[in-house]
C-alpha cells in the first residue's frame, strides 16, 4: 500500500464534500496491542459543517491572504517567515524550524495501547476529536479481534500516537464493529469547579429536587431525536443560496478562492469514500450513513451523479482547476 503520509491532493470540491461518506485519510500506521500489530489507516470521522464560505470581492474575484513585513511593507513568501515567542518581559525569542524539529516527538507509525479502561470512566470533557481506523493490512482478523474484545469487555483502550509532529493522547473505542480513535485532552487542559471558583455544594431541599425530577421525567425519552440535532444554520444558508442561484442573482465563477474562515485542519489530505474502504477491508455488508440521513448512502447512485457532473464540466471548455494551496504557516503550535 502506498504511503499517504505526505501525499497532498487538490482541495476537495464542495459538491463532493457534501456527497455522503467522503472522508479524509490522514495517517497510516500500526496499532500495537501487546505484541500484536494491527495496520490501520486514520480517517476523519466528522464531516465539516456545510456552512463554510469563500472570500471574494464585490465582482466575485477570488481573494487570498498575503503576508507583508510590517517594517519594510513588502510581500513575504512562506519561506521568509519564522515564529517568535514573546516572553512575559516582552522579549521575542525566535524558534527555527530545526529547533521545532529537535523538540518534536520522534516520528513513529505506532499507536501504542497502554491500558484498557471502562468507557464510562472517561468523562465527556476529555473527548476532543473523533477519527475512524480502517484495517489496512492483508487480513482484518486482528482488527476484528480487538474490536470484538473491547465490545465484550466494555473496555476502551487508552494510548498515544504521533501525527504531524504532535503527540496525541487517544482512546480507541469500538463502534458497531469499527474502531474509532478519539483524541483526548491532557489533564492540565481540563478545568475543575474549584479552579473556576464555582460555589461549594449546598444541599437543595428534597421537595425541590423531586419537582425537577418530575419535570425531567416528563421530557425523558429512550433515544435522541435526529430532527432536533440538524444543522439549522446550514439549511437556512442553503435555501438562501438556492433561491439566489435560481434567480441568477450574484452567481459567480471564482477560481481557487480561499476559505473565508479558518477551516478545520485536514486540508490537503486524500479524500476517500469511507464505505468503499470499509467494504474492501472489513466487511462487504458495511453501511455508513450520516446521523440525519434516514436512508443509507447509496454508492452506485452517488457514482452516477459524480460521473454526470464530471462529464458536464468537461463539456464546458475545461475550467482551470483550483491550484494546490500553499500550506499556510500557522501561528499556533502544540
Amino acid at each position: 500500500m502506498p504511503s499517504r503520509k505526505r501525499q497532498r491532493e487538490p482541495e476537495a470540491r464542495a459538491d463532493e464534500e457534501s456527497a455522503g461518506a467522503r472522508v479524509r485519510s490522514l495517517w497510516s500506521g500500526t496499532i500495537t496491542f501487546g505484541l500484536v500489530s494491527i495496520p490501520v489507516d486514520l480517517l476523519t470521522a466528522v464531516r465539516p459543517r456545510q456552512t463554510a464560505m469563500k472570500l471574494v470581492d464585490t465582482e466575485g474575484h477570488a481573494l487570498g491572504r498575503q503576508y507583508h513585513c510590517s517594517k519594510e511593507g513588502k510581500k513575504l513568501d512562506y519561506d521568509d517567515l519564522v515564529r517568535g515567542y514573546e516572553t512575559d518581559d516582552g522579549k521575542m525569542v525566535v524558534i527555527t524550524d530545526q529547533e521545532f524539529e529537535s523538540v518534536a516527538p520522534e516520528m513513529s507509525a505506532d499507536i501504542e495501547l497502554r491500558s484498557f479502561v471502562p468507557l464510562e470512566q472517561v468523562p465527556a470533557l476529555y473527548f476532543q476529536k473523533p477519527y475512524f481506523l480502517a484495517p489496512a493490512g492483508k487480513s482484518a482478523k486482528a482488527y476484528v479481534l480487538l474490536a470484538a474484545t473491547m465490545e465484550r469487555t466494555g473496555r476502551v483502550a487508552i494510548g498515544s500516537f504521533v501525527m504531524r509532529g504532535h503527540e496525541y493522547l487517544v482512546a480507541i473505542v469500538p463502534d458497531n464493529g469499527v474502531l474509532r480513535l478519539d483524541t483526548l485532552r491532557y489533564a492540565d487542559e481540563i478545568r475543575t469547579p474549584a479552579s473556576i471558583g464555582l460555589p461549594k455544594h449546598s444541599k437543595p431541599a428534597a421537595a425541590k429536587v423531586t419537582q425537577f425530577a418530575r419535570q425531567i421525567e416528563a421530557l425523558t425519552h429512550e433515544q435522541i431525536d435526529i430532527a432536533e440535532l440538524q444543522d439549522q444554520e446550514a439549511r437556512q444558508l442553503q435555501s438562501l443560496v438556492e433561491s439566489k442561484q435560481k434567480a441568477h442573482d450574484d452567481v459567480i465563477h471564482p477560481k481557487g478562492a480561499e476559505a473565508a474562515e479558518e477551516t478545520e485542519a485536514g486540508g490537503g489530505a486524500k479524500v476517500i469514500d469511507l464505505m468503499e474502504v470499509l467494504r474492501k477491508s472489513l466487511s462487504r455488508s458495511a453501511v455508513v450513513r450520516t446521523a440525519e440521513a434516514s436512508e443509507p448512502i447509496d454508492l452506485a447512485e452517488r457514482r452516477a451523479q459524480r460521473d454526470a457532473r464530471s462529464s458536464a464540466t468537461k463539456k464546458k471548455s475545461a475550467p482551470a482547476k483550483a491550484k494546490r494551496k500553499t500550506p499556510r504557516k500557522r501561528a499556533k503550535r502544540s
Binding site: 491572504r65 498575503q66 510590517s70 517567515l81 491532557y186
Partner: peptide, 27 residues
C-alpha cells in the same frame, strides 16, 4: 471547562524579525 495551553507564536519576517501583517488580496 477547557483551558487552552497551546504555545502561541507570532509570525515574523526572518530577515529583520519584524512582525508580519496579513493582507487580503485579489489572487
Amino acid at each position: 471547562a477547557i483551558e487552552d495551553r497551546s504555545v502561541r507564536f507570532h509570525l515574523l519576517h526572518e530577515k529583520d524579525q519584524a512582525p508580519v501583517e496579513q493582507h487580503i488580496v485579489r489572487k
